[in-house]
C-alpha cells in the first residue's frame, strides 16, 4: 500500500518535470514548429488542461469530503449542475450591478445551492436511509429537471471572471502564462487542494472525519458525533461541487446550457478513485482527464481529421473506465462507505 503510493508519487513528479521541460522546449525553441508537439505541449494545450481540470478538481474534492466521512456521492454531477444554474440565475438577475459584485454574488449563490444539494443528499442517506447511490441519482435527475423547468432561455449573463496575473510570478516564461495568469476560481481550486489535504490529515476535524468514514463505531465510542460530521462534510462537499458549477458559468463559459456539466461530475468521481481519495492524487487524476480534453480541443484546432472527432471525445470516458478497472484493488476506499450508522439498538 505505502509502496504503491510512493511509486505513484515519484511517477507523478517525473511526469510533471517531463511536461515542464517539454513545455519550455516547444514554446521557446524551434521545436514548436512540429504540429504534433504543439498539440501535446503548447501553452494553449496546457492552459486548456488547467481550465478543464478545475471543475474536476473541485468535484473530486467534493467526493473526497463526502466519502472520507462515509457517504458515497455519485450526485456530484447534479450538485454541479444545480450550482451552475444557481450561479446563472444570480448573475442574470444582478446584471445591472457592477461586474465584480455581481460575479461574487453568483459564486455565493452557487455555494449556497450546492450546499443545499449536499444537505438534501445527507438527509436522504442519513435520516431516511436511502441507498446512497440512488440518492445521488435522485439529485442528478432533480437538478436536471428543476434547472430545465426554471431556465429562462432568453436570459443572458453579462461578463465573466477574467484572468488575474500574479505580479512577478506571471513574468516567468511559459510557467507564468500557464500557472500564474488565471481567473480567481482557478486559483481557489488549487488552494483548496492544499487546504483540504492539510485539513484531512493534520487537524482535529480531519482525524474525526476520517474515523467516521473508516470505523464510525470507534468514533462514536469516543464521543464523536458521526452523523453530525457526515452532515457537515456532505454539505461542505456540496458547496465545492456548487462552486465547480459556478466556475463553469462565471469563469469558463459565461452562460448556462441545459445539462452543461456533461458528465464532469462522474469524471470527478473517477478522479477521486484514481487519486486514492487523496486531494493531491485526485488533482493529478483531474489534470490527466483535463489533458485528454485539451488534446481533443488541440487536435480540432490543428485540423487533424484523420480520427473522427467523436472518437477523440471518447478519450476521457474511456480513460476513466481504464482507470477504475486498473486501479481498483490497488486503491483503498474508506471502509465504512455507504453504510448507514445507527447508535441505538445496533448489536455489534
Amino acid at each position: 500500500m505505502q509502496r504503491t503510493l510512493r511509486v505513484t508519487s515519484y511517477l507523478a513528479i517525473a511526469l510533471v518535470i517531463f511536461f515542464v521541460v517539454m513545455a519550455f522546449l516547444v514554446n521557446l525553441t524551434p521545436l514548436g514548429e512540429n504540429t504534433w508537439l504543439r498539440v501535446f505541449f503548447s501553452v494553449s494545450a496546457l492552459n486548456f488542461t488547467l481550465r478543464a481540470s478545475v471543475p474536476l478538481i473541485l468535484g473530486a474534492l467534493c467526493g473526497i469530503l463526502c466519502e472520507r466521512t462515509g457517504i458515497i456521492n455519485i450526485g456530484i454531477e447534479g450538485m454541479m449542475l444545480a450550482g451552475a444554474f444557481a450561479a446563472f440565475v444570480a448573475k442574470t438577475s444582478t446584471n445591472h450591478w457592477p461586474l465584480m459584485p455581481s460575479l461574487l454574488f453568483g459564486v455565493a449563490i452557487a455555494l449556497l445551492v450546492g450546499g443545499l444539494m449536499g444537505l438534501l443528499h445527507a438527509i436522504f442517506s442519513i435520516r431516511y436511509r436511502m441507498d446512497q447511490i440512488i440518492s445521488g441519482t435522485v439529485l442528478i435527475i432533480l437538478a436536471g429537471g428543476v434547472s430545465a423547468y426554471l431556465f429562462d432561455r432568453n436570459a443572458v449573463a453579462q461578463g465573466k471572471f477574467g484572468a488575474i496575473a500574479i505580479p512577478g510570478l506571471s513574468q516567468i516564461p511559459v510557467l507564468g502564462e500557464v500557472l500564474f495568469t488565471n481567473p480567481p476560481l482557478t486559483y481557489t481550486a488549487l488552494i483548496l487542494v492544499v487546504v483540504i489535504h492539510i485539513g484531512l490529515f493534520y487537524t482535529r476535524w480531519g482525524l474525526r472525519s476520517r474515523a467516521c468514514g473508516e470505523h464510525p463505531r470507534a468514533a462514536d465510542t469516543v464521543g464523536v458525533n458521526v452523523n453530525r460530521f457526515r452532515y457537515m462534510n456532505t454539505v461542505l462537499g456540496g458547496m465545492l461541487a456548487g462552486l465547480a458549477g459556478g466556475f463553469l458559468v462565471l469563469e469558463a463559459v459565461g452562460q448556462f446550457q441545459e445539462g452543461m456539466t456533461a458528465g464532469r461530475g462522474f469524471i470527478s468521481l473517477a478522479a477521486m478513485i484514481f487519486g486514492n481519495w487523496m486531494p493531491f492524487g485526485a488533482m493529478g487524476a483531474a489534470l490527466l482527464f483535463g489533458y485528454t480534453q485539451a488534446l481533443q480541443n488541440e487536435l480540432l484546432l490543428a485540423g487533424v481529421t484523420t480520427v473522427p472527432r467523436q472518437f477523440v471525445s471518447m478519450i476521457p470516458y474511456v480513460v476513466t473506465i481504464v482507470a477504475v478497472s486498473g486501479f481498483v484493488g490497488r486503491v483503498r476506499p474508506p471502509a465504512a462507505e455507504g453504510k448507514v450508522y445507527e447508535t441505538e439498538g445496533e448489536s455489534e
Binding site: L207, H215, G223
Partner: peptide, 17 residues
C-alpha cells in the same frame, strides 16, 4: 473500536486530540 488504517497515536487521541 480501533481504526485499522490509523496509527496507535491517532487512535488513542481520537475524540480527545
Amino acid at each position: 473500536q480501533l481504526v485499522p488504517v490509523m496509527t496507535v497515536t491517532d487512535n488513542i487521541m481520537l475524540g480527545d486530540e
